[in-house]
Write a protein that binds this DNA or RNA. Structure first.
Lengths: 155, 155
DNA sequence: GTTGAAACGCCTTATAC
DNA sequence: GTATAAGGCGTTTCAAC
């Protein structure tokens, strides 16, 4: 993937303001609207720009609690892992899931309303996940920050 | 925060397609364009909709490796924590940072290019963070999934 | 307080240079 | 990369429920 400085500037702006008009974006990066539009479309088609989304405030919506869960499976057979991975994506509270190196098999990050809500999710959904031997929950006391932008550098 | 079913539907759509035109959105939720527009603006002003952003593909950009780092501070004095938190937000590779309950003090999630890049970030940035006694790095072998949408329910 | 309709101005998009 | 033209959209204001 070859990005020049102008591409990087475009991405930096769109990562902060995804609804920038092409005219405004063109002015900020010092390009004509049509030239800017062509670059943006190329970035979209190459997959660098995956999608445009609205970010909601989890705290305002009442999903103020983050829980990180370490998962140990009963074994590391491919079938066990596949069954687990298929089931895990159906739990809406899980924001992300990684297959880890080290002591634990998977690491989940969940968004829930409060401790009581987490107890419910744990009981109704997590404890039913197939192939799981052990779940270790770590509750976040406070979100220091969460970033969605990636650092982009062009040349 | 009172959301009815239509608000929830609007949010669900905008979380997937943040650049939907108001006309298109209105049609999908079964409202007139002006009514829909008013609701969206209210959701923006109440802070439920935080921002609109472009999501970039970390893998395409070469940031394919996720590392989760557990941090232990030398003590839990407020001053120590504040100095750490201020410094941690300057490290661009850190995607999020939580103050945790349990054995570890902070949990960081990083995006880097590869193991070599992580070694550099660790040496140049993480090991210089103030007040840190211990850093335990856990490398993700594979991203199973990452979600940005929150579950929204109206009534 | 909420909805539907119309007019204006601006943006997006495509074509040509 | 720039310039131009056509179609579409958001915005605003109005009246009606």
């Amino acid at each position: 993937m070859h990005l020049d400085t102008i591409d990087a500037t475009i991405l930096t702006h769109l990562q902060k303001e995804g609804r920038l008009t092409n005219a405004e974006l063109a002015e900020r990066v010092g390009l004509s609207p049509s030239a800017c539009h062509r670059r943006v479309r190329a970035l979209e088609e190459s997959g660098v720009i995956q999608s445009y989304v609205a970010l909601l405030d989890a705290d305002v919506l009442g999903y103020g609690l983050t829980v990180v869960v370490s998962v140990t499976l009963e074994n590391q057979r491919r079938e066990t892992m596949e069954r687990f991975e298929n089931a895990v994506s159906d739990v809406g509270a899980i924001m992300d899931c990684f297959l880890m190196t080290g002591a634990d098999d998977y690491l989940l990050r969940l968004r829930v309303k409060d401790a009581h809500d987490y107890e419910r999710v744990h009981r109704e959904q997590l404890s039913n996940l197939p192939g799981v031997t052990r779940l270790v929950s770590n509750i976040a006391m406070r979100k220091v920050f969460v970033r969605t932008e990636l650092p982009v550098q062009g040349r």
